[in-house]
């Protein structure tokens, strides 16, 4: 099985990996070590010490804190609460629900009609990073995109699961 250096994984995360290596990653069987290397790279990118267990986005992570609780955290350090809860419920939201607001992001004819569909942008209350954009109908419940089974995941990785997974 092909394996990759930490430098290659770092470049991958930065979007700077050379095409030959990227193509190899696409075409060859997956390297199980990637997760460990990836966590190292991500950990070096943040200023806090909580252990990153699973990234949910470029700046959003499930982390294990010093007291072994698992929370969802922004790269800036903002805590969105228990990882089993939908982090969006503790975010800020900006809803593009009229033509003026839609026109800020697309020409009028290339944006949805807000009688049919709205854009809901979820921001970090501390740093303003946009972690997600939903595009549902009005009334649609906030979507809980992903609820990982961390215990089973770490079992697949042959690694010990976090104490409170």
């Amino acid at each position: 099985m092909t394996t990759y250096t930490k430098k290659q994984v770092t470049d991958l995360v930065k979007g700077e990996l050379d095409w030959d290596s990227l193509h190899q990653m696409l075409s060859m069987p997956k390297d199980k070590e990637r997760y460990g290397q990836y966590m190292e790279v991500l950990q070096e990118q943040v200023s806090w010490d909580d252990r990153i267990l699973l990234p949910l986005g470029p700046h959003l992570f499930i982390v294990e804190t010093g007291d072994n609780t698992l929370v969802t955290k922004c790269g800036c350090g903002h805590n969105f609460g228990d990882y089993r809860q939908n982090w969006k419920l503790n975010a800020l939201v900006y809803v593009r629900d009229n033509e003026t607001k839609m026109s800020e992001v697309y020409p009028k004819l290339m944006a949805p009609h807000t009688d049919w569909q709205v854009y809901r942008e979820y921001y970090c209350p501390t740093c303003g990073t946009m972690h997600d954009v939903e595009a549902p109908t009005p009334w649609y419940p906030v979507i809980h995109d992903f609820q990982p089974n961390l215990k089973a995941f770490f079992d697949w990785l042959d690694m010990p699961a976090p104490a409170n997974a």
């Binding site: 470029p58 290339m110 049919w116 990073t129 972690h131 595009a135």
Partner: peptide, 20 residues
């Protein structure tokens, strides 16, 4: 598609433009 878009973005990305 015109009034709606089925193709949302991911992790902070925007949906693609709708049709006209």
């Amino acid at each position: 598609n015109g009034y709606m878009n089925s193709d949302w973005g991911l992790m902070g990305g925007y949906p693609s433009a709708t049709g006209y």
